[in-house]
């Protein structure tokens, strides 16, 4: 009994139930063959790309911030490597460094503006989103005269970042798993994990408690920018080309995954494992529908309903998690920051 109780108290409990629920729905209503679904690469590849972006977005959300500039940073990363290593023919590692540096710089700007001003991070990153969209488009046109740039990568880069395992699973899946494992480890065992939760719970008292909230916030935005450009970079290596558009869909997909995974948008509550499960759930909902008899046209409806149900469930689970052991006075404050 206590085992169940303590499982239900964890942030990822509700999201695990969402995942099971959506699979059950697809099996019972959609007639999915589980063997085929689990053997398929499409949704795993989708999840890996989304997951690498969703983890830092989720950590930022736990810390009380949001980053929507990722929507422009994914094409920015793929365009940076394609221009540097494809158009100018420099070694591939220079392109990689360039792509990641671009993410770091934009993350730095987002972070500094977030800590130095009282402007909400949604608005700051909306501004950098729009600026970067223009920079990528105008920059590509200016430098290469073209809006789509091709890239040929050496074998080692192709194998590490853009290869296929068993001719269907992308190598980015390993990067996703490794990234998840490292962040879970760091958040659970290192003090920085507690700092992030403290910051999202109450910024002022976290700062008073001696946590370097400014440095921490800036680092988290840098991580988020770099993760997004990393995904873009891998995609350029994988598909031998970079295109300027695309990426906007990641904004809402990442937020939905993180929230379905039990993270509180207002900060202070969530878990990496929950985000991981949220990404799996989202990927199965949106990509698994191909394996069902349900018309593909309805997939957005299912995503919307899943999100609302999952959030409602998370809400009641969190109340349960926070109430019985000890009443926390802080719980009432959550709403005010919305």
């Amino acid at each position: 009994m206590s085992v169940i109780g303590s499982f239900l108290r964890r942030p990822e409990a509700a999201s695990a139930i969402s995942l099971v629920g959506i699979i059950a729905f697809y099996v019972l209503i959609g007639g999915v063959n589980l063997g085929t679904l689990f053997g398929a690469a499409s949704w795993v590849n989708f999840a890996a790309n989304l997951g690498i972006v969703a983890i830092p977005v989720g950590i930022l959300m736990i810390g009380g911030y949001i980053d929507i500039s990722i929507g422009a940073m994914i094409p920015a990363g793929s365009m940076a490597i394609a221009i540097i290593s494809g158009y100018y023919g420099l070694p591939i590692w220079v392109g990689m460094v360039g792509a990641l540096a671009m993410g770091a710089v934009v993350g730095l700007v987002n972070g500094i503006l977030s800590v130095r001003t009282t402007v909400p991070s949604l608005i700051i990153t909306l501004a950098t989103l729009v600026v970067m969209q223009g920079v990528v488009l105008a920059g590509a046109k200016l430098l290469t005269g073209n809006a789509s740039v091709s890239l040929t990568s050496p074998v080692w880069a192709k194998t590490m970042f853009g290869g296929l395992i068993g001719s269907s699973h992308q190598t980015i899946i390993f990067w996703w798993l490794a990234f998840t494992a490292i962040t879970v480890f760091v958040i659970q065992t290192k003090p920085v994990g507690n700092w992030i939760f403290a910051m999202g719970g109450d910024m002022v008292s976290a700062r008073n408690a001696g946590i370097a909230t400014n440095k921490l916030t800036i680092s988290l935005f840098v991580l988020s920018g770099m993760s997004a450009t990393f995904v873009g970079m891998c995609s350029a290596i994988q598909f031998n080309s970079a295109q300027v558009s695309g990426g906007m869909g990641y904004i809402f997909n990442a937020i939905v995954s993180v929230v379905v995974g039990g993270t509180l948008l207002t900060g202070g509550y969530g878990s990496i494992l929950g985000i991981f499960i949220g990404v799996l759930t989202f990927s199965i909902v949106s990509q698994g529908i191909y394996f069902t008899q349900i018309d593909r046209n309805w997939s957005n409806l299912i995503i919307g309903v899943t999100l609302l149900l999952a959030v409602a469930m998370n809400e009641s689970f969190r109340k349960f998690a926070l109430s019985p052991p000890k009443k926390r006075p802080g719980a009432q404050r959550e709403r005010q920051k919305a």
Binding site: V256, N300, G304, L308, V311
Partner: peptide
Amino acid sequence: KTKIPSLIITIGTMFAVMGLTLG
């Protein structure tokens, strides 16, 4: 009626309405 942030609720209804329109 709920404590869910409006950003999340309206993302949910956005997806749902999009799906209903298309369907």
